[in-house]
Design a protein around this nucleic acid. Structure first.
Lengths: 124, 124
DNA sequence: ATGTGTGCAAACAGTTTGCAAGCTT
DNA sequence: AAGCTTGCAAACTGTTTGCACACAT
């Protein structure tokens, strides 16, 4: 009944651990395949789901885009996406501003913030 | 070459005009079918796409959820979704607070904010 | 009459799942 | 050996599209 250690799980974990931005399923599959060529798409989905359940990784859901995944355990943060190079940057400090948007009799449990624009590089 | 007036387009428009919260494709289809029974799902998609292009309606993309649509032309706003009754409430006042989250050499063009929690009703 | 708009069904993209075989423990 | 994991392919969900026909202009 304990969970087993497999090359596929390790490959997915390593890929995510070394990434410096959230990755999509296809990217994860491509990168993991370089080390463990036999890995299949279905397995990537299954491993990701199990890692999510254990909160080892977390989900980044940009509106209208396919899900991305990143290592969990980071400080609370959001993302800025550059519309030119599509690079994602972490953003923090959203905090108490957000609670003020709601009436007193509402309970705020969670929030998502996404920023879009031009990054320093693309602004030239 | 001008755009033509059809019962299906009118039906979709009316449904959205009378809604008090953003609607999904299936809801729009169901409601529109009550007036124009012959309308098909494909047509709903096509009409929505064309209305989006004309900016007559706008898209509400909750992370991880299927797209919703609402009449455009409202003031700038975001949404709070109650996790119990799933009702959506409009929220405004997100302000320039948001701009402060970014370094000076980044240009902020747009942003999305989603709040989740319990609404006044569900808090009892 | 012209050609946009529509319904239907097939095609797609992303994700999930059943099953038999493989590998970890 | 036992049973969690995997690969493959089929199934699914949400959305798009090709085609012939209907209908608004």
């Amino acid at each position: 009944m304990p969970e087993r250690r497999t090359a596929q799980k390790a490959a997915v974990m390593n890929v995510l651990a070394e990434a410096d931005a959230p990755l999509g399923v296809q990217e994860i599959l491509d990168l993991a395949s370089q080390v463990t060529p036999s890995i299949s798409q279905a397995t990537v989905y299954r491993v990701l789901k199990s890692l999510l359940k254990k909160q080892t990784i977390s989900l980044v859901q940009l509106p209208g885009e396919t899900p991305l995944y990143e290592m969990a355990g980071k400080h609370h943060h959001h993302f800025f996406r550059c519309r030119t190079c599509r690079q994602m940057y972490e953003v923090q400090g959203c905090d108490e501003l957000i609670q003020r948007l709601l009436p007193d009799n509402f309970t705020l449990e969670d929030h998502e913030v996404f920023l879009f624009g031009l990054c320093a590089n693309c602004r030239r």
